[in-house]
Amino acid sequence: MLGATNLSDDSRAPLLIHSVADLRRWRRNALMAGKTVGMVPTMGALHDGHLNLVRRARTSCDLVVVCIYVNPSQFAPHEDLDQYPRTLQQDIALLGGSAKDAARQTDASATGCLADVVFAPSNESVYPDGITTVRKDQRGAFVEVLGLSHQMEGVTRPHFFRGVATIVTKLINLVQPDRVFFGQKDAQQCVVVRSLIRNLCLPVEMTVVETTREQDGLAMSSRNRYLTAEERQPAIALYKALRRAQTAYLEGERRRSALMELANAEISAAPNVSLEYLSLAHPRTLDELDNIGEDGAIISGAIRMPSARLIDNLLLGCEL
């Protein structure tokens, strides 16, 4: 049973909910109390990038739900589903931190923590017909966003955005948030989810929060913990490449050929770094651009290192 549904509860930890029934009971109480709800979907292994999303949600909404669920349908059979870090107790402790410096301090905060609720469902709750990473064996309802899922990340991970679109739709249906919060680091995901919300007429607003970075510029990611000490310095090659292209853009360069040449040179000089792709795409259609126009562009890429695959992006004259 749900242990605490009182929205004025003053405990120092988020309420942990596993079952759909308990989540719906909590959400019904929030609705009856007239509270707005923000949702931050994550796969756990939280870092400060995730916490910045939660902080933004706290400043915008009365109550904050952080979803922690490692979603099988966005992994291929050869990918790291089984190895993906699962640190639920540590995540809950991080979300139990004081919201004083990040939140509006009113009676809207149920716990005084960064998050009011952690929703950590089971696979059976999310996929009642079962779930496998083998697409041909999957059963049940899945969601695809056509036209935005096949390029960039979708070239080497063609299964990925089908899984993302499906789990985001399920979590929005389960939590019924007023607002959802995503990080810019996953720029293509942000474009896909915006299209999903618009095309399925989902009654939710979406906010994209700027990428949180380490001091040297490396985008924070749960997979950064895979990096060895020797790989940590070369890992910033992608960020340096994107920054070099961004600098040229700010100085007036608009040609794809020139920007990509600068970025490729930076990555080629880094040891143990293999470039998977570089993209210069329109911020809404994700079409590759020969020249950047008035709508701006997303410059993004992925690199592989012996221990990890890393992605990053920068925005050139546009917003997500």
Rank of each mutant, 00 (worst) to 15 (best):
G112N: 05
C113W: 09
C113M: 09
L114W: 05
A115D: 02
A115S: 08
A115W: 01
D116V: 05
V117G: 04
V118Y: 01
V118T: 03
V118H: 01
F119D: 01
A120G: 02
A120V: 00
P121H: 01
S122E: 08
S122G: 02
N123W: 00
E124D: 13
S125V: 02
V126H: 02
Y127I: 05
P128G: 09
G130P: 08
I131M: 11
I131G: 11
T132R: 12
T132Y: 13
T132M: 12
T132E: 11
T132D: 06
V134K: 14
V134A: 14
R135S: 13
R135W: 08
R135G: 01
K136C: 12
K136Q: 15
K136H: 13
D137K: 09
Q138N: 10
Q138L: 11
R139V: 14
G140S: 06
G140A: 07
A141F: 10
A141P: 00
A141Y: 05
F142Q: 02
V143G: 02
V143P: 03
V145N: 02
V145H: 03
G147L: 10
L148E: 11
H150Y: 10
Q151V: 14
M152E: 13
M152H: 07
E153N: 11
E153G: 08
V155Y: 07
T156W: 06
P158R: 09
F161V: 04
F161E: 10
F161N: 05
F161Q: 06
R162P: 04
R162D: 05
R162G: 11
G163R: 07
G163T: 08
G163E: 14
G163I: 09
V164M: 05
V164P: 06
A165L: 03
T166D: 05
T166I: 12
I167Y: 02
I167A: 03
I167N: 02
T169N: 15
T169W: 07
T169R: 07
K170F: 12
K170Q: 11
K170R: 15
K170M: 13
K170E: 07
L171Q: 07
N173W: 02
N173M: 09
